[in-house]
Amino acid sequence: MPRRRRRPKLAVWKFASCDGCQLTLLDCEDELLLMSELFEIAYFLEASSAVVRGPYDLSLVEGSITTAEEVERIHAIRRQSRILVAMGACATAGGIQALRNFVDVEDMKRVVYASPEYVRTLEHSLPASAYVPVDYELPGCPPNKVQVLEFLTAFLQGRRPSIPTHSVCLDCKRQGIVCVMVAEGIPCLGPVTRTGCGALCPRYRRGCYGCFGPMESPNTESLSAWFLIRSGLAPQQLVPLYRSFNAAAPAFVEASQRYADPKSVQKAAESLGTHAFDQREPANGEA
């Protein structure tokens, strides 16, 4: 690596979030000291109260944009950042708090807060990319530290990060994990979910929850039809399946809304020609 005259200035920003993504950075224990040598950590309140003024070479943004103040702040950060990276499910897809995007926010305020009149919030929880251009997105709830380190390494070396966008299935198969869906009838979002977690849940015989959001070409319509027919799920059970940490990711929005209306189920089944499906296994995972 050629000697740099100046270390790149790194800033880590927090919006509506649980801080888990920032903890993923701090969790890079073996590399932390090295990171602090290779980067000038200019703004990272979770790690240090010492703050260096912008502009910044690299901004990592955690959290979704949920208030008018946050809209102003993300614009200000964008103006001060050469490269802006959205990190985690909140910053890339709106997070779990985007569940409010599907209901009336005023109703939700009244349910959650004793004095809702003090809460000033936007109607929707949205990813950073809804307001400013984002240079790169690191998905996941939380992101995988291997992927975070790969991004930082690629940034330092000026190359493309090598972060796969294919399904979780490939990583199950690479590890020799027996498919929980085929072998146990457990509904699993792995086929439509982007890899990154190392197939954590299937390794422990659980279906994938979709923490890393939609994969590169998610065919949720086909997977959902299979859940209905073979895993014995009711249409209304499909809605919460797609509405978790990445509820507002466009592919998952489409998938959950398709089954929010029960009449749509018959239509979807017909369009897929489900007569070709074998219906002899109605049990939900029970042999």
Partner: peptide
């Protein structure tokens, strides 16, 4: 319409041999 492009068929196939090569730093 039905294919998930998940890659399971290829991974379980006993003859599919394709690989990719990547440099890590």
């Amino acid at each position: 319409q039905r294919c998930l492009a998940c890659g399971n068929c290829t991974m379980v196939c006993p003859t599919c041999f394709c690989f990719s090569v990547e440099d890590r730093h």
